[in-house]
Amino acid sequence: MVSTSAPTRPAPARARRRSGWPAVTGLLLLSALPILGGAQRLGELGTDPASAPSAALAGVIVAHIVGMSLYCLLGAFQFSPALRGRSAWHRRAGRVLIPAGMVGALASIALAVFFSGPADEFALAIVRIVFAVPMLVFLVLATAAIVRRAFAAHGAWMTRAYAIAVTGGTQALVLIIWSVLGGETGVVSETWLVGVGFVINSLVAEGIIRRRARRDVRRG
Rank of each mutant, 00 (worst) to 15 (best):
P81E: 06
I109H: 04
A93R: 06
I35L: 07
T167P: 01
W178I: 00
R84D: 05
A11Q: 00
G75P: 01
G207K: 12
A161H: 11
A110K: 07
V196C: 13
L139S: 12
I61M: 09
R9D: 00
I177W: 02
G67S: 04
L181F: 12
S3C: 15
S179H: 15
I61F: 08
V140P: 00
S69D: 09
G207C: 01
V137Q: 14
A119P: 00
W89A: 08
F79N: 00
G101L: 00
S108E: 08
L27M: 15
I200R: 01
P81F: 11
G75I: 01
T191G: 02
G197F: 08
L36Y: 14
R149K: 15
C72G: 01
Q40E: 09
G183E: 03
L175N: 10
R86E: 01
H90K: 11
I176H: 05
G26Y: 02
I109F: 06
T170H: 03
E44V: 00
G220V: 00
W89L: 10
L33F: 05
R149N: 15
W21R: 03
R210M: 05
R128A: 04
R14S: 11
G20E: 01
A107G: 15
G75E: 03
R91M: 06
A58P: 04
G26I: 08
G183L: 03
P118W: 06
S179I: 00
R17K: 13
L29H: 12
A163V: 02
G94S: 12
I200A: 04
M102T: 10
S54N: 03
A145F: 07
L175F: 03
H154D: 13
V137C: 13
A11I: 10
R148C: 08
A112Q: 06
A161C: 05
A125V: 06
Q78C: 05
R218D: 05
Q171M: 07
L73N: 05
G117T: 02
P34R: 14
R128W: 11
L175E: 10
L28I: 13
V127C: 07
L175M: 13
A123Y: 06
V24L: 06
T191Y: 03
T170N: 03
A132E: 08
E121G: 06
T25A: 14
W89N: 02
T4Y: 03
I200P: 07
F77I: 08
N201P: 11
I209E: 02
S189L: 01
Y71V: 09
R17V: 02
G195Q: 11
R210T: 06
M102Q: 11
